[in-house]
């Protein structure tokens, strides 16, 4: 690009070295892990610089604090699930529940029977348009601490209630994805299946839904990323997730200069987990876009 005559204007000359280093940066950025490395370095430098400004020799002790607390924030206290691992587990579980329920609701939304279609639509709209945090509080209050089934008591721990609450907006959005995908299949598919005497249910599960999977996967993965990034919300309910434990660690240290480095560090974990998924989603999207 610098070979173009337009860029030989004298005023542009001092800029050129910067431009080449930018090109270098872009090249590094285009590799997924290069980008991650740069971002994490940048984040830590930012944090350290901040500390430097405040307390001359404190930078090294910030590193020490991070190293010290990282295992706790990652794995939790060791009693049951906790930390970042719990965030991931909650996201996986909420996604599974949300996907199963959302599939049912989405199919319900295109049902020829009004008694199925109408409630499915209503439930979908309700949970699609509710703030996630409000849902979390609501289900925290609504669900009991344990339920008794046939004499057995099944405890509902805080994180499980939070998982159920998070799965509901996911369910509603998956329901819309499923509905949209089903409606995008040409009616000729329904007609030819019907003329071959397949029942509606057989047509749905064997003809229509298998064709929907392709177009549903990218938006589905997209919602998974959104869900992962929403899991720190559960810290407000006192669940021992990465966010809660970061706050606990900060409280224990009681040092203002640790705030920014610690939250940046946590941010990076989420980024490192969701960014590859987002990249992969983009790849699938472009692949399917060409094929369909």
């Amino acid at each position: 690009m610098s070979e173009h005559p337009k860029f030989h204007l004298p005023v542009m000359l001092p800029v050129r070295p910067v431009a080449t280093s930018t090109a270098c940066l872009v090249a590094t950025l285009s590799s997924r892990w290069g980008l991650l490395a740069i971002l994490s370095g940048l984040a830590l430098c930012l944090g350290l610089e901040q500390a430097w400004a405040q307390q001359d020799m404190a930078a090294f002790s910030i590193w020490e604090a991070i190293v010290k607390w990282t295992p706790l924030i990652f794995w939790g206290t060791g009693q049951g699930l906790g930390g970042f691992v719990l965030n991931i587990w909650v996201s996986v579980l909420a996604m599974t529940i949300g996907t199963c329920l959302g599939l049912m609701l989405g199919i319900g939304q295109v049902s020829p029977h009004r008694v199925l279609r109408w409630p499915s639509w209503a439930v979908t709209q309700l949970f699609r348009n509710s703030p996630w945090l409000v849902l979390l509080f609501y289900f925290m209050m609504l669900l009991p601490y344990e339920i008794r089934i046939l004499g057995f008591s099944v405890p509902f721990s805080g994180w499980f209630k939070a998982t159920v609450a998070l799965s509901l907006p996911v369910m509603a959005n998956i329901s819309e994805i499923v509905r949209g995908a089903i409606l995008s299949i040409p009616t000729g598919q329904w007609e030819s299946a019907e003329s071959l005497a397949l029942t509606r249910r057989q047509t749905m599960w064997r003809i229509i839904l298998p064709q929907c999977v392709k177009r549903m996967i990218p938006p589905w993965m997209n919602w998974y990323c959104i869900l992962v990034m929403s899991t720190p919300l559960i810290s407000i309910l006192g669940v021992q997730d990465a966010m809660t434990l970061t706050q606990d660690a900060l409280a224990a240290e009681g040092r203002m200069e640790l705030l920014i480095p610690f939250y940046l560090w946590l941010m990076l974990w989420f980024f490192a987990y969701t960014y590859p998924i987002a990249r992969w989603t983009r790849r699938l999207e472009s692949r399917f876009a060409v094929k369909l």
Partner: peptide, 10 residues
């Protein structure tokens, strides 16, 4: 048999 074939593409 339909004008648009309507085979199951998958």
């Amino acid at each position: 048999v339909f004008q648009q074939f309507n085979l199951f593409p998958h």
